[in-house]
Design a protein around this nucleic acid. Structure first.
Lengths: 212, 212, 212, 212
DNA sequence: AATGAATGAGGTTTCATTCAT
DNA sequence: CATGAATGAAACCTCATTCAT
C-alpha cells in the first residue's frame, strides 16, 4: 500500500477504522464495525487492504506521513534562541496530538507491545525522527552554553509524550477532577492546550536550563 | 467477587491474565490463552469469575486494593517537610508501577475509553484517592508558605502518571534510544527507577516551589 | 430408583424439576436451575438420581403411581349406570390434570417423541391402563344395550386428553380470548373445571349413546 | 426477517430445523444438528437468521403466513348452510395440521409457556384469527336460528385443537392401541384424517345444534 | 472494480457429570 | 452421606477472509 495513493473509499475506511480502533482497540473492533461505520461493503476492506492487520499498517503509514512533515521546517526556519525553538516544537507536538486524538489513542495502545511488527517499526521511526530533531536543537543550546551539559533527552521526551498522551487518553478523568464538565468539547480542548503549553514549557525550561 | 478472598487457583488465573492482557490487550487475549498459561481447565475461568469481563473486573478490584493501601501511612508517618513527603510519594508511586508493570500496562490501555464500566469506575476511584492524598500535602505546603499558590494538581498528576506509564509501556523504545540494551532487565529497571525518581522530583520541585 | 422410597431431599428435587420442566421444557432446564430451586447441592441430583434423564424417569414413575391409584376403585364402587360411571371417570381425570398441571404440561411435551425411552413406556402404560378401564365400562354399556356398537375408544380418549391438555397448556390464551383475566387463578381453575366437566360429558354422551 | 423473502438456502435451513424441533424440541436440537441436516455451513444459520431464537421466530412467521391464507376464502365462497361451512372449516384445519405435522408438534410444545416472546404472539395471533372466522359463521347460524344461543367457542376450539394436536403428537400411541401398525404412514394418515373428520363434525353438530 | 454469499476457525460460555474429601 | 471443586464436551455465536460473479 503506497502512501498518499488512497482513493476516497480507502480514506473513508481508514477514517472509520481510526475512530473505532481509538475507542475500542484494534481487537475490540471488527471489520464489520468498520465497514458499517465507513458505509462500505464488508469485502472492500480485504479487497483494498488485504487484511485487518494491513489496514492498521496502512493507517500508520498514512498518518505518520501526515504528521512528520513540518517539523524540519520549524527547526530550520527559526533562527531564534534554542529555547524558543524548543517551545515551538512543544507547541507543534501538542497541536498535532490534539488534532489527531484518535490516532494518538491508538498509538498509546499499540506501542505497549514490543513486537517487531511493521506498526512498531513505524512508531519507533517516528520517535527516532522526533528525537533527532530535538536532539540537534538541544545540542546547539549546549554548544551555545545556554543548556545544561547533562540532559537525558529520551527521558524528557518520555515526559512530554507521556504527559500529553495521558492527558488525551484520560481527559475524561481530568475533566471530572478539574470540574470542567460545563465546557464544550472545543472549549475544553483549548483549555488543555494552553495548560499543556505552559506546563511543558516550564518543565523543559527547568530541565534544560539553570534558570528558575 | 469479594476482594482478598481469592484461592490459589483464582490467583493463578488472575496472574496469567494479567500478563497476557498487558502483552496482547484484553480483546487480543482469549480465555483459552489464559487457561493455558495458568495451567487450568478452560471452564474454570467462567466457573470462578463468571465471564472474561468479570475476570478483568476481579483483577482490578484485587490489584487496586493491593495498591491503595500504604499511601495514607506514608503521608501520616512522616512529619517532615511537605516537599519531602511529596518526594516519598513519588518514589512510592514509581516503585509500585515498576513492581506492577503488567497491571499498569493494562490500565494504560483500558483507561482510554470513558465508558462507565466497573473497571473505569475503579480507575477513577484510584485516581481520585491518589489525588486527594497529594492534594492534602500540597495544601499543607501552600498554607506553610513553601509552595506556590496557583498549582494545577490534576495536570501535575497527569504528568507524573503519563511519564511513568509511558516509560513503562515504551521502555523498549527508551532502551533502544538510550543504548541500554546491554543491561539485564533488573539492572535496566534500577536505572529507570533512579532516573524517574530524580526527574520527577525536579519537576515537582520546580512546579511547586519557587526554588530552582 | 424404587418408587415411593424417596426421602425429603429427593422429593424437593423432583418438585423443583417438575415446575421447571413444565415451564421451560426438559432441555431448557439445567440441573443448576433445579438445584437452585430445590435449594439443594448441585451434585446431589447426580448423586440421588444418577443423571438428569434418570431424574425425569424417576419423576414419571413417582407421578404415574400417584395418579393411577383410585381409578379401579371408582369403577368398581359404583354400581350405577355405565354413563354415570363414565361421567365420574371424566370428572376424576379432569380433577387430576388440574391438580397436576405442571406434570401434565411435561407429559404434553414429552409424549411428542415416539422414542422408546423409559419415559415413553410409562406414558404408554398409563394410557393403556386408562383405556382398559374405560373400555370395560363401555363394553358393559354396549352389552347392556345402552351404548352404540361402533365406538372408537382411542379417538374418544384422544379427544378428552387433547381437550383437557390443550386447555391446561393454553389456558393463557383461553383466558385472554374469553375475557376472564379478572378472575383469580383459583377462580379461573374452577371455571374451566366446570366447563370441561359439562362439555366432555356432552361429547361422551352424544358419542356413546343415541340420545341427544 | 421479512416473510416470503426466503431464498433456497434459508428454506433448507427452516425445513431442517422444523423437523428437528418437532422431533427433539427446540432446546434439544443444536444448531449443529440443523446445519448438518440442512447440509449447510454452521455459520450460515447465524448469518441468515442471527440466532437460534430468531430462526424459530422466522419459522413461525413463515409458517403462520403459509397457513392463514385460505380460511377467509372458504367462508365467503360457500353460500351453503352454516353447518356445512363449519364442516369445511374443520376439514381444512385437519388437512393443514396433517400436512404440517412437524410444525404443529413444535407449536404444541412452544405454546405451553405463556411468555411474551414473538413466537407466542404469533401463536396467539393465529388463534385469534381462526377464532374470529368461526365466530362469524357460528353467529350467522345463531341468527338464522339453526344453532344454539349459548355456545362457548373458545372451548369448542380448544376441543378441536386439542383433539387434532393430540392425535398428531401421540399418533404413535394411537396406532399401537388401535392395532394399525400394519398400515403405511400414508395409509395411516388417511385413516386418522377420515376419523377426525367424522368425529369432530359430530362433536360440532351436537354442540352447536339441537339435532342428534 | 466491486460485492453478496458463504465459510472455516476460533471465540466465550454453559452444560451435565465426576472426583476427592 | 454429602458436597465443593473441577472438568471434558459441547453449546451458540462471531470472526476475518474468500470466492463466484
Amino acid at each position: 500500500m503506497e502512501t498518499g495513493k488512497m482513493n476516497e473509499k480507502q480514506i473513508q475506511i481508514v477514517d472509520a477504522a481510526e475512530h473505532l480502533f481509538a475507542e475500542k482497540g484494534f481487537h475490540g473492533t471488527s471489520v464489520r464495525d468498520i465497514a458499517e461505520k465507513a458505509q462500505v461493503n464488508l469485502a472492500m476492506i480485504s479487497y483494498y487492504f488485504g487484511s485487518k492487520d494491513q489496514l492498521l499498517e496502512a493507517m500508520f503509514e498514512y498518518k505518520s506521513n501526515l504528521m512528520a512533515t513540518q517539523l524540519e521546517v520549524l527547526v530550520h526556519q527559526s533562527n531564534s534562541e534554542p529555547l524558543e525553538i524548543i517551545y515551538s516544537l512543544i507547541e507543534h507536538y501538542i497541536d498535532k496530538v490534539l488534532q489527531q486524538q484518535p490516532f494518538h489513542k491508538i498509538m498509546v495502545r499499540e506501542q505497549v507491545v514490543p513486537s517487531t511488527s511493521r506498526v512498531q517499526e513505524l512508531i519507533l521511526g517516528m520517535r527516532k525522527r522526533n528525537l533527532e530533531i530535538i536532539h540537534r536543537v538541544v545540542t546547539k543550546g549546549q554548544v551555545e552554553g545556554r543548556f545544561k551539559k547533562e540532559i537525558d533527552f529520551p527521558l524528557l521526551m518520555t515526559t512530554m509524550f507521556g504527559a500529553v498522551n495521558n492527558m488525551v487518553t484520560t481527559q475524561y478523568y481530568y475533566r471530572a477532577l478539574s470540574n470542567l464538565e460545563h465546557l464544550s468539547d472545543e472549549e475544553f480542548k483549548q483549555v488543555i492546550r494552553e495548560k499543556l503549553y505552559k506546563h511543558l514549557k516550564e518543565i523543559f525550561k527547568s530541565t534544560l536550563t539553570n534558570e528558575a
